[in-house]
């Protein structure tokens, strides 16, 4: 039983790495622009397919494809989306951008269908079948690599956000857009960069998940919901929050199979999403702050 728990725990942590990469993109866009990006799922799905083309078609190293090639492409895609679709409705009520980006998601799905057909695809790499044992817990090399790549990307991004001018400007805009503007930050440009970065992260997360899971043009929807759940749990402000949210969700999902059918795993995450939205709209950080505030008083 303890061994079983250890295996499940390791598996949850590895999954959490991928979740964090996905959610951070969503959190970034929401934090800076207050836009809920429903095309996030589309970017995850397209990321998976671009990786498929690069790895299976062009025989590229899977991790070079996912880390070096995919993110810049999706950064450009994100900038394009922001300029063409999001900017014109920035002044409209938030529901307009939500529906608009939903339309973009539908279009992305259809484009994927036309190019790659609706067949479910998998990517099998030399790493897929490799594994080693950590004590009695078997660890798959592929999953570990995906996890590490995700975590390193987030750490690098964290450095970028805290150390560079652009990163600080993004954070300032996220905290108070009007004040940032007053301080001389070109918030229009920041919006664009944030949307680009968010989409790049989604694309990369898609490419990484494609190395583990199967995908088709509908892929991404449930991961987007999970990302929402994580963002709600962890809040949009901090890396730590997103990491914590990812871990909580991954653990809840993975451990839930001990009591319920594996088929109901997604049910757990959707229920958590709705509950989290209701109980703590500000996420875990707010919950902590609230307790802290009470204690201070």
């Amino acid at each position: 039983m303890t061994l079983n728990l250890a295996i499940l725990f390791v598996s949850a942590v590895l999954v959490a790495g991928v979740y964090a990469t996905m959610s951070y993109g969503l959190a970034l866009i929401f934090g800076v622009m207050k836009v809920i990006n429903l095309s996030h799922a589309g970017a995850i799905m397209l990321g998976a397919y671009v990786a498929y083309v690069l790895i299976v078609g062009l025989k590229m190293n899977p991790f070079i494809a996912a880390v070096v090639v995919v993110p810049p492409l999706f950064f450009l895609l994100g900038i394009l989306l922001e300029r063409v679709f999001v900017r014109p409705v920035r002044k409209a009520p938030p529901i307009a951008s939500l529906l608009l980006l939903f339309g973009v998601w539908l279009m992305m799905q259809n484009i994927a269908y036309i190019i790659w057909t609706g067949e479910v695809r998998t990517i099998t790499t030399p790493y897929t079948m490799m594994r080693f044992n950590l004590g009695a817990v078997p660890i798959n090399v592929n999953r570990l690599a995906v996890f590490l790549v995700g975590v390193f990307t987030l750490l690098a991004l964290h450095q970028f956000m805290t150390r560079t001018y652009l990163g600080k400007a993004i954070r300032a805009t996220a905290q108070d857009s009007a004040a940032a503007k007053l301080a001389g930050i070109n918030t229009d440009q920041i919006d664009m960069v944030a949307f680009g970065l968010g989409t790049a992260l989604a694309g990369m997360a898609g490419a990484l998940t494609a190395l583990i899971y199967a995908f088709d043009p509908n892929f991404g929807g449930s991961y987007m919901l999970k990302s929402f759940c994580i963002v709600v749990l962890g809040g949009v402000e901090s890396f730590l929050g997103v990491a914590l949210g990812s871990l909580i969700l991954a653990l809840a999902e993975t451990l839930s199979v001990l009591w319920i059918r594996a088929g109901l795993q997604d049910f757990v995450s959707f229920v958590i999403l709705v509950l989290a939205l209701l109980v703590m709209p500000g996420g875990l950080p707010e919950l902590f702050q609230r307790r802290f505030a009470v204690r201070q008083r």
Binding site: G103, V104, W105, L106, M107, N110, Y113
Partner: peptide, 8 residues
Amino acid sequence: LLVYGALL
């Protein structure tokens, strides 16, 4: 879907 998405 392309048509409906674009219409939307």
